[in-house]
């Protein structure tokens, strides 16, 4: 059985800023990293591999240099890596992205059964959390988002039990295979690659599939297949810190000011 894990190369968002003068993104020198949530997805896939002997395939859609992200998954222990890279995939929003990823998974499924697909909860650049559900829908897989614990994977009964982390509550759910999971950070602690694995992965083969492999209608993928587009970008207004009242002499007053602020900003869940 295959466990497919979807990973994305993202810019290190803490280092992305807008040039206040030209109002454009300053991209120079911003390094690319593996989407942090995806490292937990890879770890979960590897735990399935360790426990059940599944083969782990890491896939990613992105430019040719996104290969580095897949190498990291290989260094952690993934068995195979496929980069989906083609000009026509470019400029995709979540709808068009899930189309390509789902097609790639379908293609992998021709070789061996895909039992589980794992994605990070969301990416730190887009923060949409939409690609996972998109893939599940296109593949007609059961979908379990925000998984923070995997209780049981029963391969013979073909069912999985997990805990999902929602607002103020946890839900224990059971779903049939094949299933798509999106995972949160609390799920696990990603393993640190050994040097041997790193060196191994540096030379490992990362397969590159372009659209000639997937054969998708170019109007349904990439920019052309994306219903949404960015019309404007700008810097957020950064609220500067504010000192409230004179806490040293009037603690009551300062406390009241703070409560007023919290009410104003709708921070209270009373």
């Amino acid at each position: 059985m295959l466990v497919v894990v979807c990973v994305k190369q993202v810019p290190d968002t803490t280092q992305v800023q807008i040039d206040p003068v030209t109002n454009t993104l300053i991209r120079e020198g911003v390094p690319f990293i593996v989407n942090p949530y995806d490292t937990h997805a890879v770890e979960q896939a590897l735990r399935f591999k360790d426990r059940y002997g599944c083969r782990v395939v890491a896939i990613s859609m992105g430019p040719p240099n996104a290969e580095a992200t897949l190498r990291k998954a290989l260094a952690q222990g993934a068995d195979r890596a496929v980069l989906l890279s083609d000009r026509v995939f470019g400029g995709a929003d979540t709808l068009a992205t899930s189309k390509v990823l789902a097609a790639a998974i379908e293609r992998l499924a021709q070789e061996d059964e895909v039992g589980v697909v794992i994605c990070g909860k969301q990416t730190i650049d887009g923060d949409t959390a939409q690609v996972g559900p998109g893939i599940a829908t296109r593949l007609d897989f059961a979908q379990l988002t925000l998984v923070d614990r995997v209780d049981e994977l029963d391969l013979s009964a073909r069912r999985i039990k997990v805990s999902r982390k929602l607002e103020g509550r946890h839900e224990h759910v059971e779903a049939p295979l094949p299933v798509l999971l999106t995972v949160v950070r609390e799920l696990n602690r990603p393993r640190y690659p050994t040097v041997a694995m790193r060196l191994e992965s540096a030379d490992a083969q990362v397969e590159v599939w372009d659209n000639s492999v997937l054969g998708l209608d170019v109007n349904t993928i990439g920019l052309k297949g994306s219903p949404t587009w960015v019309s404007r970008i700008f810097s957020p207004e950064r609220a500067k810190g504010e000192m409230l009242g004179d806490g040293a002499h009037d603690p009551e007053g300062a406390a009241q000011l703070l409560i007023d602020k919290m009410i104003e900003k709708d921070l209270l869940a009373l």
């Binding site: 923060d127 404007r232 957020p236």
Partner: peptide, 12 residues
């Protein structure tokens, strides 16, 4: 977007 470092207006 980008972890809150920029704001984007999106249309469909």
């Amino acid at each position: 977007a980008f972890g809150g470092n920029i704001m984007a207006t999106i249309v469909c």
